[in-house]
Design a protein around this nucleic acid. Structure first.
Length: 882
RNA sequence: GCCCGGGUGGCGGAAUGGCAGACGCGCCGGACUCAAAAUCCGGUGUCCCCUAAAGACGUGUGGGUUCAAGUCCCACCCCGGGCACCA
């Protein structure tokens, strides 16, 4: 498509201007603002507002920072960035003090994998990728304050990531433990969960036989915050689906621990503890199940069953969780030969071992109530174990397999009680006898925080044979990665850092003796747990963030990013934030007040974009051909921000044409033609070409004339619609309103300057380069980045007459023009007097006349009662049936 | 299986319970042009119909509430995402 207007000159020109003028610099509280800065001119103040100013007028708008991959920017990235940028520009014009930063989540596997393959240091790869991403993001003209750029791999950043880790360690929230981790013999490396395929092969190289082996790991005690992470979801304005996912992930359940006494063998008389959410069904327990890894499993087995149990347990240990899940249908298990005593009725019930019970949850053992639990039911059927119904549904439905709340039956003291009452009563009863207690359990597990990788933050711990695991003294932070030649992990499950022996060896910070550094590194999540705080004070070398700055800017008012981070990143960041909050280091209980997920941008074929499908759209090409403004505008015009939607080059062209129409609305055709000719003659790029822009004159129709009422109505409609839509993030409909205005204004032979200027203000957040250029053309003295947002005047939006649709029995039959201010009675009179309407209802009985002023008129009529048996239209009222 | 989203023209999508389809794409016609592109103007849900008028039908399916339903209620079908033996 032919270039609609010289965006290739306009866009770099304004990007340079914004950079040179520091237009989008966000001033810290109390900071002196240079006299020439447009923020100062707009607000007339020499110092930026401080936290004490109550800061009602700040806006912190945050994008999820990208991992700078080697593939370069994807068209999906700028979707969220454009949305936040539009809002930032809008809020600046509304007079708010805006913070809008960008940075890089730059630790991670691909750079390390590349290092293993080629020997290139990950820092080199990372720098290259960051430079590409920065260039691509900057070419889109986003209004970031680039002084605040952060990079998680920067030593000055790593220092504070490690520092925060040490705060967790000192609070007892970081500990070491032997944990089974995924191990791939082929890669000789530990794999992350997401690197293990469902069939037990490794996702990196496809090696078979990935298995779990126990390794010493660092764990963060996120479970200590489970309740608050759950409860404080109430404090944030997030999509319900994300909150729900977090709730499910945390998985809180209330129930009780119940102690059964072992009846047989060596362990007779000892307690077997189970967790249940349904203590009210205790009378229905017909057997018990231990997880294969349960510590009692060895001791309770009857000699006659030893062999079978040992075989089963060995088998279960080999099975990965993946396999266990794959075999979901069959419920394998083995009888131990021994029994336990049900505390409520003294019954002896058999104890089984089965891998449908997990060691990691509750007590690692359950009482099975097959009549009222699906899993127990399936297991009991398979192994022919008895069932006993102890709950009846209240609606009298089928009791067998009923898992809902109902009424207890055949349950001794519980009989006749509702589930809720029965739970309370039996729990009290158990507590009284010392055989149980109320308990809350979570699905959420502690966070496995160490990785056996090179390209991550070293965990700042020193292991001393005498003094144990000690934190690296804060003044020695950061602990930086050693230079290495070989990044491939050793075969003995040690992290790559273990090979840097000089680096590992260090004095014990306590006794000064020979000690060794921790060689595990942190996961990629670490840096992203707190980057939004570092933006507030990126250069601070004495604290991770200054208290005053933190109080001034937090919380993040709007956080935009992909839904793939619904649980992990957002939960981890909330966790760290709460720890920092408890330490008194941050002022808000939650970091992100509002969250919006942008949808995915699919390829033109409606499939996920991927190299292999060949449907990837490259932002560089789009910008070269259509310009950054068209690219931004198109991404916002595609549809609602949260929706997934396919790319369409034709759609992009439509938006590009719209910008061309805007250009032609403002520019003089002859002078543009002369300009284009000069480009052809003297080259399309370079300073001379850019200079030539100055020769373009405004359109002759642009005059200092008073707008007509129609023109006022057009611009004020647009102002209202765009303003309202921006508040609700309705970017696509806001752009539609801009188009409607341009369609109208194109027909105007007189285009009042003030009206057209207002339009440019509305356009500015969406297509900032073009808006700036046309603003300048209209004698704008300086950037419109801080120009006051226009207000609409409803005076221009009221019309004298309105056309009301007239319905008869709900069907559109006519229209009636009435004065807009007409009272319902007046409208009703006109309807009754209207000849056409009279004709339409001739011979019928008018039952009801509904007038909704400004909206609609509906006449409910009925045919005269039919003389024959033929049912009329109105037969709906039951006369028909027989 | 469970929990979230979502099904509207040829396509992307608009519609506080009140004229379904704003805006854009595509398509059709016209103007400009030697011609094409670009641009500008007009039309464009489906059916019926030579055309028009008029009419009928139309928001996944079936029911319901209402003067009035894309929108609210019930049941179901399909698509997308998440979780998946958590006792």
């Amino acid at each position: 498509m032919r270039r609609q207007y010289p965006f290739h000159l306009i866009e770099p020109k304004w990007q340079r201007s914004w950079r040179d003028q520091d237009t989008f610099r966000a001033f810290d509280p109390g900071e002196r603002i240079p006299e020439a800065h447009p923020f100062r001119r707009r607000h007339g103040r020499a110092l930026a507002p401080s936290a004490a100013d109550a800061y009602a007028a700040k806006a912190y708008l945050l994008d999820m920072f990208p991992y700078p991959s080697g593939a370069g920017l994807h068209v999906g990235h700028p979707e969220g960035y454009t949305a936040t940028d539009i809002l930032c520009r809008y809020r600046r014009m509304r007079g708010l003090h805006v913070l809008h930063p960008m940075g890089w989540d730059a630790f991670g596997l691909p750079a390390e994998q590349y290092a293993m393959d080629t020997g290139t240091h990950p820092a080199v790869t990372t720098k290259k990728n960051v430079d590409t991403f920065r260039r691509q993001i900057q070419m889109l003209g986003f209004s970031y304050d680039w002084r605040r750029e952060v990079n998680t791999t920067d030593p000055a950043y790593v220092r504070w990531t490690q520092w925060i880790f040490l705060q967790l360690f000192k609070k007892g929230l970081a500990y070491e433990s032997e944990v089974p981790v995924w191990w791939c013999d082929g890669c000789k490396a530990v794999l992350a969960n997401e690197e293990v395929n469902a069939d037990g092969t490794c996702d990196r190289k496809g090696h078979a036989g990935v298995y779990r082996r126990p390794l010493r790991q660092w764990i963060l005690r996120i479970t200590a915050y489970a309740d608050r992470l759950l409860q404080d979801l109430e404090l944030v304005d997030w999509p319900e689906s994300i909150k729900e996912q977090q709730r499910n992930w945390i998985g809180r359940s209330e129930g009780a621990f119940v102690d059964f006494a072992l009846a047989d063998g060596a362990a007779a008389g000892e307690k077997l503890r189970v967790f249940t959410t349904r203590p009210d069904t205790l009378f229905g327990a017909t057997y018990m199940v231990l997880a294969p890894e349960h510590p009692l499993a060895d001791r309770i087995v009857a000699p006659s069953h030893k062999a079978a149990v040992a075989a089963y347990r060995a088998d279960a240990a080999r099975k990965s969780e993946v396999e266990r899940a794959a075999l979901e249908k069959e419920k394998s298990g083995v009888f131990t030969g021994s029994h336990a005593i049900n505390p409520v009725n003294g019954e002896r019930i058999p104890i089984w071992i089965a891998d449908y019970v997990m060691m990691g949850y509750g007590a690692g053992a359950i009482m099975a109530v097959p009549a009222h639990d699906e899993r127990d039911f399936a297991f009991a059927k398979q192994h022919r174990l008895p069932l006993r119904i102890v709950v009846h549904p209240k609606d009298g439905g089928e009791a067998l397999g009923f898992t809902g709340e109902g009424v207890s039956v055949e349950s001794g003291l519980l009989t006749g009680l509702s589930t809720w009452d029965a739970k309370r009563k039996i729990t009290a009863w158990l507590v009284e006898r010392g055989v149980g207690q109320a308990a809350v359990q979570y699905k959420l597990r502690d966070w496995l925080f160490s990785r056996q990788r090179y390209w991550g933050e070293p965990i700042p711990i020193v292991h001393c044979p005498k003094c144990g695991s000690l934190p690296v003294p804060e003044e020695q932070l950061p602990v930086l990665l050693p230079e290495m030649r070989e990044y491939t992990p050793t075969g003995n499950a040690e992290p790559p850092l273990a090979k840097a022996t000089d680096w590992v060896r260090c004095p014990c910070p306590k006794c000064g003796g020979a000690a060794a550094r921790e060689t595990n590194t942190m996961p990629q999540w670490a840096g992203s747990c707190w980057y939004y705080l570092r933006y507030l004070d990126p250069k601070n070398s004495s604290a991770f963030v200054d208290r005053e700055k933190e109080r001034a800017w937090m919380p993040v008012d709007l956080y935009v990013g992909g839904a793939e981070h619904a649980v992990l990143h957002l939960l981890y960041a909330r966790f760290w934030h709460k720890v920092l909050h408890d330490l008194g280091l941050v002022s808000t209980p939650e970091p992100f007040a509002r969250l919006v997920n942008q949808g995915m941008i699919l390829g033109e074929d409606n499939q996920k974009m991927s190299k292999s499908r060949g449907n990837v759209i490259n932002p560089d090409e789009v910008v070269a051909e259509y310009g950054a403004d068209a690219f931004r505008l198109y991404e916002m015009f595609m549809g609602p921000i949260e929706a997934s939607k396919p790319w369409s080059t034709q759609g992009l062209q439509g938006v590009s044409r719209f910008l061309g129409r805007v250009w032609r609305l403002f520019t003089d055709e002859a002078s543009v033609e002369a300009f284009e000719q000069s480009l052809t003659l003297r080259g399309h790029d370079g300073p001379a070409a850019e200079q030539a822009l100055a020769a373009i004159r405004p359109h002759a129709a642009l005059v200092d004339a008073a707008p007509t009422p129609d023109q006022q109505a057009a611009i004020h409609r647009a102002i209202r619609k765009v303003t309202e839509d921006l508040e609700t993030l309705g970017f696509n409909t806001a752009i539609s309103a801009l188009m409607v205005f341009v369609n109208e204004a194109t027909a105007w032979s007189v285009r009042p300057r003030d009206t057209m200027r207002s339009f440019l203000l509305l356009l500015a957040p969406f297509a900032p380069h073009l808006a700036e250029e046309l603003w300048r053309l209209l004698d704008g003295q300086e950037t419109l980045a801080y120009a006051p947002w226009p207000a609409w005047d409803s005076r221009w939006l009221t019309v004298a007459e309105v056309e009301l649709p007239v319905q008869i029995n709900g069907k559109l039959r006519d229209r009636l023009v009435v004065p807009a201010a007409a009272a319902p009675e007046e409208i009703e009179r006109r309807v009754r007097e209207n000849a056409k309407i009279q004709a339409l209802i001739a011979g019928k009985t008018l039952r009801k006349l509904i007038v909704v002023p400004g909206k609609i008129i509906n006449l409910v009529v009925q045919d005269p009662l039919p003389s024959s048996a033929e049912p009329a239209d109105g037969a709906r009222d039951g006369r028909l049936a027989e």
